[in-house]
Design a protein around this nucleic acid. Structure first.
Length: 285
DNA sequence: CCCCAGGTTCTGG
DNA sequence: CCAGAACATGGG
């Protein structure tokens, strides 16, 4: 059984599957020969692509109507046209947004986001994807289409470090285990983080061994939809230092996480992004 | 052999 | 409090 969902957007610029699903915020989508992306969102195996000014989702779930899930997952309630207009008033963001205007923030499962970014530390995206694929295949429930669900906290909490060895996750395995045990036991209740102040939520996440400020910000941004969180990874630190020597514009801080994602993808994908200011300076200003 | 990768923890001042 | 090293693993 498979449903096709078609979500119209104001502009064809408001969604691009590659820019959204392969920009380092989600790790479970793979480019297909037809240009669509196949993967798992939450517990939904799916394919996602764009057709003109619409996002199209094919999913094989047995829910009567999973459209609300997709609206939330794809952040369809947010007016990206208006937001991009605001961001583009800043000359640096103008370039970043122009580079990937179809990028959107995904609202992913909180637990999966936590694990994903624990595994991301001091690691590269290619290998992060591999570890997560193995994690799902080894410990997750089997779904339609040869896909696997992301393992629940309970699925991992009782495992030993030896059992997690198949992941080849290195020192991150013990962090994953600590997260699973704290969440499965109720010591850390993820849903409860919605009802406490942001700083408190971040501190609670950081009680997990292996979760520092950057990973916590990623979880809050990609899992809890807190767009004011700005994960400071090596790329963003470089970008801020070079492109915003005078500091990040205060007017954009309220949507700093979104700006961060455009910048991250721009700087990581386009090598000249961080070189141009040097060239200008060299030209004598 | 080196260095690096969407960091965090540990250690020595 | 703060700078460096250590941490597992795979790729260049």
């Amino acid at each position: 059984m498979s449903h096709i969902h078609r979500f119209p957007l104001p502009s064809p610029d408001d969604f691009d599957a590659q820019q959204t699903l392969d920009c380092g915020q989600a790790f479970r989508f793979q480019l297909q020969e037809d240009g669509s992306y196949a993967g798992v969102a939450g517990s939904h195996p799916c394919r996602i692509w764009q057709e003109g000014a619409a996002v199209v989702v094919e999913c094989s779930c047995n829910e009567d109507d999973c459209a609300p899930f997709w609206r939330r997952y794809l952040d369809l309630g947010r007016d990206y046209g208006a937001l991009k207009l605001i961001l583009r008033q800043d000359p640096v963001m103008e370039k970043a947004v122009s580079f990937c205007p179809g990028m959107r923030l995904l609202r992913q499962d909180e637990w999966e986001t936590l694990c994903s970014f624990i595994l991301s530390q001091n690691n590269n995206i290619k290998r992060i994807k591999g570890i997560i694929a193995t994690l799902c295949k080894e410990f997750g429930q089997k779904l339609h289409g040869g896909q696997y669900a992301f393992p629940a906290p309970r699925d991992l909490a009782g495992r030993t470090l030896g059992e997690l060895g198949v992941l080849r996750a290195g020192f991150r395995a013990k962090y994953l285990l600590d997260a699973a045990q704290k969440v499965a036991s109720g010591e850390l209740e993820l849903r409860a983080l919605y009802s406490v102040p942001l700083g408190e939520a971040k501190e609670r996440l950081m009680t997990i061994h292996g979760v520092g400020p950057k990973v916590a910000d990623c979880v809050l941004l990609y899992g809890f939809g807190k767009v004011e969180c700005i994960p400071k990874d090596v790329w963003i630190k470089r970008a801020l230092a070079i492109l915003y020597p005078g500091g990040f514009p205060a007017a954009l801080e309220a949507v700093g996480g979104l700006a961060q994602q455009y910048l991250f993808h721009y700087c990581r994908t386009c090598p000249q992004a961080l070189e141009e200011p040097r060239a200008l300076a060299g030209a004598g200003i």
